[in-house]
Amino acid sequence: MEATLATLGLEPVENGSLVPERMTFADDGRIPNTRLATLLFRSRGLDTQLDREAVAHCFERVFTTNGWRSSWRGGVFPYHHYHSIAHEAFGVLSGWGRLRLGGEQGEDVDVRAGDVLVLPAGTGHCHIQASDDFLLLAGYPEDQRELDLIRDDPTEHDAAVARIERVSRPARDPLGGELARWWP
């Protein structure tokens, strides 16, 4: 698995572990967000021998090995939304994209091919801008087979918060690290 991570530019940097950037976002009354950190694992650059299908295959293998099932390929909706019954991971297959995380008052984050983004249930996300070839692979923990999609609607907020509290935490992040290290 280490060889696959290396081809994706995701090499361990601290005590043999990949270390993500960590971001948290406040509840704004429309998007609940969560106290759990959004995780961004930055790639140092993909192996130049890989085409987009090979990158997808690598991410699918790594995600599946670590208990995150691959679900779809595509982009992010251009409106603020979140999921209240599942955590979500994105592996960037190609191009670059700018996403706003955390709702309207959140933070813009740029991701590029090889990066992995882990959004805890309740975290708002929205497409802002992207290259023409921007493509993601989405994955979800094995025990989270259903996915809801909730827009930034205050009438949905309280019920969503209750559902978010019940979402299980997988043992590992999609790249194989102990998730409890980032989500205590």
Results as ranks from 00 to 15, higher is better:
Val76Thr: 13
Gly176Gln: 04
Ser17Gln: 14
Glu146Asn: 15
Ser131Thr: 12
Ala3Asp: 12
Asp115Ser: 05
Leu135Lys: 15
Pro78Met: 01
Leu119Asn: 15
Arg151Val: 07
Arg44Glu: 14
Asp158Trp: 15
Arg151Phe: 03
Asp133Ile: 00
Ser168Glu: 10
Ile164Phe: 04
Ile128Gly: 05
Asp28Lys: 04
His57Pro: 10
Leu136Asn: 11
Leu18Lys: 13
Gly114Asn: 12
His157Asn: 08
Ala6Asn: 14
Tyr82Trp: 07
Phe41Asn: 05
Arg61Val: 11
Ile164Arg: 15
Ala86Arg: 09
Arg52Lys: 12
Phe41Lys: 09
Trp68Ala: 00
Arg30Pro: 03
Gly122Ile: 02
Gly97Asp: 05
Tyr79Pro: 03
Leu18Ala: 02
Ala6Asp: 14
Glu53Met: 08
Thr24Leu: 00
Leu50Met: 09
Val76Glu: 08
Gln144Phe: 05
Arg172Tyr: 10
Leu50Asn: 10
Asp158Phe: 13
Arg61Cys: 05
Thr64Gly: 07
Trp72Tyr: 07
Asp47Gly: 06
Cys126Arg: 15
Glu53Tyr: 13
Glu14Cys: 07
Val55Arg: 12
Trp96Lys: 14
His81Tyr: 10
Gly124Cys: 00
Asp27Trp: 03
Gly74Phe: 06
Asp132Tyr: 05
Ala159Glu: 10
Glu11Leu: 10
Ala56Leu: 05
Thr155Trp: 10
Leu117Asp: 09
Phe134Pro: 11
Asp28Arg: 11
Ala56Trp: 00
Thr24Asn: 02
Ser43Lys: 06
